[in-house]
Nucleic acid binder design. Structure first.
Length: 486
RNA sequence: GACCCUAUCGUCUAAAGGUCAGGACACCGGAUUUUCAUUCCGAUAAUCGGGGUUCGAUUCCCCGUAGGGUCACCA
């Protein structure tokens, strides 16, 4: 039987990075086994439904370079893949449960349940439905239904049974059935609850492995019971650690900063770097290899290497490191293309446009080679290229930061540079260095002062590289303008 | 509170009874004839506590402690 995994997001907002991590693991496991990865939209909560959310979720997934074999838009043999379009299926299956007496009608009002809950909590007990409606006979039930009383359908949990299963991550998990509540399966609005729909759909969609966050661990026994009542074969369950922020002991939440998958793309992280970072959130190959392409991850991914823990930290410094690794690996040409795509795709104004108007393609690539290893994300680009566009405003105070006689330094460079016709790095670099050295001048004094005059900054790429990009005319103009301070 | 899960350097983790407890990120020090960044060396740093089992426990068991998750007609 072929391995089939899925991810089942709810269209209640933007796609969370944690969801992306879970997706990645499910995706890799299916691909590793030449199986299928599906997406199913779980939109049974009409109150939290957000219009357009489904499309945005699918779009981010594609933006990260991931795809699905069956699901919304694509279709497939087990559709529809949107739960609100499967209502008749759930009705059919709930009927089976009712007939086999594994489920029952409940007419209790929310008010009564709230009161019950209060009572339990005041006695420091875990809430469990008291089966108030279980004793109703068919006549009473039909009577209420006919007269329009709102009802739900509940799971009839066995009295005393040990529900046990083998979690592929955590190992054997067992819970006594007396701890399990008679879960609502069908809501009074005719929509199924998650617990019911997930079992029916995973069965009908032939899902073989369910990898999901640990928050689902406590409800897994309910699902197991449903599989058993239906006589469905059990898929393998595996529960993944949740994501937390560094130093926190709670699940990642909006107040900690970016949590949506899209946010990191907007900031200018490379999708492949994000994916690589996410792979290690709850998994480790057991070797020292850290840089993983998607294909390599699929090769090495293994369920037995998933971490048995509750929380793993989303360490942004490590993410930055990953992004740097990938940024440096890009050729200058690729970097340029990616930067332009990023600016265009996320509608972010970027100085690369202005630079393109001033400089030739070759000069652009040179600038990129200078900037590439000095920035972490694309959104850092602008702040490191300003002086390639605008002439700096400098005064005698900053010019004198490294020199007692900046005028002399600048005049020296003006002379030297104006006499030079070959502006290649190979010629210019030895010329400037050697001349400074031959005269016994301080390298630091001379080059730092030149750097300030040309860029207005004390921290830049090597100044001679910058001169080569700027060209003779602009270089001389900027030195001259700096000299006007004296 | 009940139930379930978890516990190794500051952080993320490796070591499926025998290792000088390994790696990476961060931090610190040094080198790379101008700053920054890269790169390269180097240093510091960990098995939650207490009992067992064993010739031997990070690893297996028990008890504490700490953390997390769940206890909805939300997923």
């Amino acid at each position: 039987m072929s391995v089939r995994t899925r991810i089942a997001p709810s269209p209640t907002g933007e796609f969370h990075v944690g969801g992306l991590r879970t997706l990645l693991f499910n995706y890799a496991w299916a691909k590793k086994n030449n199986g299928q990865f599906l997406i199913r939209i779980e939109d049974t909560d009409r109150n939290r439904f957000v219009d357009g959310a489904t499309n945005r979720i699918l779009e981010v997934i594609k933006e990260y370079g991931l795809d699905w074999d069956e699901g919304p838009v694509k279709g497939g043999d087990c559709g529809p893949y949107i739960q609100s379009e499967r209502l008749n299926i759930y009705r059919e299956y709930i009927q089976r449960l009712l007939e086999s007496k594994n489920a029952y009608y409940c007419f209790c009002t929310p008010e009564r349940l709230d009161k019950l809950r209060e009572q339990y909590s005041s006695e420091n007990k875990t809430f469990k439905y008291d089966r108030h409606c279980l004793s109703l006979n068919d006549f009473e039930i039909n009577n209420r239904i006919d007269s329009g009383v709102k009802y739900v359908i509940r799971l009839l949990v066995p009295e005393d049974e040990l529900v046990t299963y083998e979690d592929v991550v955590l190992g054997e998990i067992s819970v006594p059935s007396k701890e399990i509540d008679d879960q609502v399966l069908m809501k009074s609005d005719g929509y199924p609850t998650y617990h019911f729909a997930v079992v029916v759909d995973d069965y009908l969609m032939k899902i073989t492995h369910v990898l999901r966050g640990v928050e689902w661990l406590p409800s897994t026994p309910k699902h197991i019971l449903l599989y058993k009542f239906f006589g469905f074969p059990l898929p393998k369950f595996g529960h993944l650690p949740n994501l937390k922020n560094l130093g926190s002991s709670k699940k990642m939440s909006k107040r900690d900063g970016s949590v949506f998958a899209i946010d990191f793309l907007k900031e200018g992280y490379l999708p492949e770097a994000m994916l690589n970072f996410l792979m290690f959130l709850g998994w480790n190959p057991g070797t020292e290899k850290e840089i993983y392409s998607l294909d390599e991850f699929i090769q090495d991914f293994d369920l037995s290497k998933i971490h048995q823990t509750d929380l793993v930290s989303f360490n942004k410094e490590k993410l930055d490191w990953f992004n740097n690794q990938y940024l440096w690996k890009l050729t200058n040409e690729e970097f340029l293309e990616r930067l332009k795509y990023w600016s265009h795709r996320f509608n972010t104004p970027c100085l690369i446009q202005d630079l393109s108007e001033i400089y030739s393609h070759l000069q652009l690539l040179k600038i990129i080679s200078l900037i590439k290893e000095r920035i972490t994300v694309f959104s850092d680009f602008d702040k490191s290229v300003d002086y390639f566009i605008n002439s700096p405003q400098v005064d005698s105070l900053v010019l004198g930061k490294y020199s007692n006689d900046p005028k002399k330094v600048l005049e020296f460079f003006y002379e030297l540079i104006s006499s030079q016709s070959d502006f290649s790095f190979e010629k210019l670099d030895p010329l400037l260095h050697n001349t400074v050295k031959e005269n016994g001048f301080s390298m630091k004094e001379y080059f730092m002062t030149l750097r300030i005059a040309l860029t207005g900054e004390t921290v830049t790429p090597p100044i001679i590289d910058i001169i080569c990009v700027l060209g003779k005319d602009i270089t001389l103009i900027r030195i001259k303008s700096a000299l006007q301070n004296f």
